[in-house]
Simulated assay, not measured.
Amino acid sequence: MANWTDPRATVAPPSSVGARADYDAGLRSYMLSVYNYMASGVLLTGIVALLFAPYARDVLINAAGTGMSGLGWLITLAPLAFIMVLSFGINRLATGTAQALFWAFAVVMGLSMSTIFITYTGTSIAQTFFATAAAFAGLSLWGYTTKRDLSGFGTFLIMGVVGILVAMLINIFLQSSAMAFAISVIGVLLFAGLTAYDTQRIKSIYSYVAGTDFMAKSVIMGALQLYLDFVNMFMFLLQLFGGRRD
């Protein structure tokens, strides 16, 4: 995220046995907090999406049924505003404010994602969710435990995400099913890679923030990164394998 520095080159873990044990215990607690926030955010988004789904068509779709309503576009784009505020303003935000913004972001994401219950069957949504959860767990575990430095992939992955966003905007006008399929396949691969990369990066950041006032806010930012990886991978998989309603 913006305004973060990669600490891997500047802070090394302690070398003594006792200090190392304390460091490892602190790291496990830190990562557990990140995962708890991330999982709670995903759960909150899912609950809001499910509860709002019966009203989604009336609120988010225009009267003609041909596209998004004005309120629909506002709700759809609102999560981006939360991401920008958290990413670029995290250093100036109080911890409580950052936490409130994270939960508000999860709620708004739930509102914007409620349309999946209109488009896809409940069974396919559940199957895709659990498949995504299993893939995410495996990829994140690999990113946490691997000795391989994944930092070199960061620029490539971020450039790929930018490319996907551009392609999605173009396809709004082209409405190409082949292009949509390619975007979904590449999107799954990119966010799979980002899951491992972000996990390793969050793990590395602990060395930099441990014992500082910024630690609690870095937990929120780490959870936001992994949340976005999970949700995007889920949405691309759903587009590929989700069973559509008649």
Rank of each mutant, 00 (worst) to 15 (best):
A2C: 09
A2V: 04
N3D: 15
W4L: 06
T10Y: 08
T10D: 08
A12N: 05
P14A: 05
P14C: 05
P14F: 02
S15M: 09
S16C: 08
S16M: 08
V17D: 12
G18T: 11
A19K: 13
R20I: 00
A25W: 04
G26T: 09
L32M: 13
V34A: 14
Y35S: 15
T45L: 04
V48Q: 04
A49R: 09
A49S: 08
A53I: 00
P54F: 00
P54R: 03
R57C: 00
L60Y: 02
G65F: 08
G65H: 11
T66I: 10
L71F: 12
G72K: 04
L74W: 07
L77V: 02
A78W: 10
A81D: 12
F82R: 04
I83T: 06
M84E: 14
M84D: 10
V85K: 06
S87E: 13
G89Q: 08
I90K: 05
I90G: 08
N91T: 09
G96Q: 06
A98V: 03
Q99S: 10
A100K: 02
A100R: 03
F102T: 00
W103F: 15
V108Y: 01
M113A: 06
T115I: 00
I116G: 02
I116L: 10
F117Q: 03
I118A: 09
A126Q: 12
A126C: 03
Q127F: 15
T128D: 03
F129V: 09
A133P: 12
A134V: 13
S140T: 11
L141C: 05
W142E: 03
G143M: 07
Y144Q: 01
Y144A: 11
K147F: 07
S151L: 01
G152K: 07
F156R: 00
L157D: 15
L157R: 10
L157W: 09
G160V: 01
V161T: 12
L165P: 03
A167T: 14
I170D: 07
N171I: 07
I172L: 03
I172A: 05
S176R: 03
S176C: 07
A178M: 10
A180N: 05
I183Q: 11
S184P: 09
V185A: 12
L190V: 13
T195K: 14
Y197D: 12
Q200E: 08
Q200P: 10
R201P: 11
I202K: 11
I202Q: 15
Y206E: 05
Y206D: 08
Y206G: 10
Y208W: 10
A216C: 06
V219R: 14
M221T: 13
Q225H: 13
Q225K: 14
L226W: 04
L226D: 15
D229R: 02
N232G: 02
N232P: 01
F234G: 04
M235Q: 11
L238C: 01
G243M: 02
R244Q: 11
R244A: 07
R245H: 02
R245A: 01
